[in-house]
Design a protein around this nucleic acid. Structure first.
Length: 319
DNA sequence: GGCCAGGCGCGAC
DNA sequence: GTCGCGCATGGC
């Protein structure tokens, strides 16, 4: 990186409607964002460090680059942010009058959008997320980025771009064991290696990424089972009808809808019930249920946004 | 200090 | 196909 680029900062304001930044970035869908003490959300996506703040004027942004490269093409910064945050897509749908939980959940979580995450980063993130807390998963992803990613210095802080598959594939199960990733170690290594084998640079089309995710689900030892694959589908592969079933979804399915059984059965129930918007319906209910019944402050969305505390784990180092 | 975290994989049926 | 159990680790 050239010296003069380091100091550059690209700013602007975006018009937004029916959008809530805190619900979107604080919902737990993405791992490389955090709200700092100054109230700004700070993160790194597609190799660009970005700061965001929503107020009466709209969505304020500043970032380390004026153009961003994605699997959907090269975009200028504001175009990228509209795409990344789905600012022009509105999840509007009818909810039947007798589904009171979904009505309440939707009203509370309205404004949440599914972020278009980088597919490879999303795959590794969700393999790591299995049976681990958000903050621990964030820490582990940041560790991978600091180890084999490249630094992005911005606003007096050092962010780390998530590395391409070839780079992550240089780390083996032993390395991750040493880093105390536990039994996820060999699975992260396997998935990274599998992806690297096909597109080492991480350069692939959406259709190719979908094929990779489908293959990882079939592949034993990848760490990608039904839940993880559905998360990857929903959060990075445009499959917005996906319903990932975790422990919280199982709980609300049983106590609010009387639905029990295997994860596969609950998944199919949700996808059939809610159809095209199933991903959003499930996410609303998931967030609402967890808000009511569990977790710490950082795991909640509404309480967290109502407080002025910073996130537990921020995606940068002070330099 | 025990319980459980936004599960997966394997072996028994 | 599905049920039950082991799997590392850390937070609360």
């Amino acid at each position: 990186m050239k010296k003069q680029d380091k100091a550059k900062m690209y700013r602007g304001v975006l018009d937004v409607a029916d959008f809530e930044l805190g619900h979107t970035l604080g919902s737990g869908q993405c791992f490389r964002w955090g709200r700092d003490v100054d109230g700004w959300w700070k993160g790194i996506a597609y190799g660009v460090a970005i700061h965001l703040k929503q107020d009466e004027s709209g969505l304020q942004f500043c970032a380390s680059s004026e153009s961003v490269s994605t699997y959907a093409g090269e975009m200028d910064l504001s175009e990228f942010l509209r795409w990344y945050l789905r600012l022009d897509e509105y999840p509007r749908f009818r909810v039947s009058r007798d589904d009171k939980y979904l009505r309440q959940a939707r009203d509370l979580m309205k404004g949440l959008r599914f972020v278009r995450q980088d597919p490879f980063e999303c795959i590794i993130s969700y393999v790591l997320s299995v049976q681990a807390h958000m903050t621990l998963t964030k820490r582990r992803i940041n560790l991978i980025a600091r180890t084999v990613g490249h630094p992005v210095d911005f606003d007096g802080k050092r962010y780390w771009a998530f590395p391409i598959p070839d780079r992550v594939a240089t780390l083996d199960g032993q390395f991750f064991r040493k880093q105390r990733f536990g039994w996820r170690s060999e699975r992260v290594a396997d998935s990274a290696g599998f992806v690297a084998q096909q597109f080492g640079s991480g350069d692939a089309t959406l259709a190719q990424w979908r094929a990779v995710n489908d293959a990882l689900l079939e592949r034993s030892g990848s760490g990608v089972g039904l839940k993880v694959a559905k998360c990857i589908d929903l959060f990075s592969l445009e499959r917005l009808h996906s319903v990932p079933v975790d422990t919280w979804v199982r709980k609300f399915a049983e106590s609010w809808y009387g639905v029990t059984g295997s994860d596969a059965k609950i998944c199919k129930w949700g996808e059939d019930r809610w159809g095209k918007w199933a991903g959003y319906c499930n996410e609303y209910l998931f967030s609402y249920y967890r808000e009511l019944h569990g977790g710490t402050l950082y795991d909640k969305v509404l309480s967290f946004n109502a407080s002025d505390e910073p996130s537990a784990e921020l995606p940068f180092d002070m330099v």
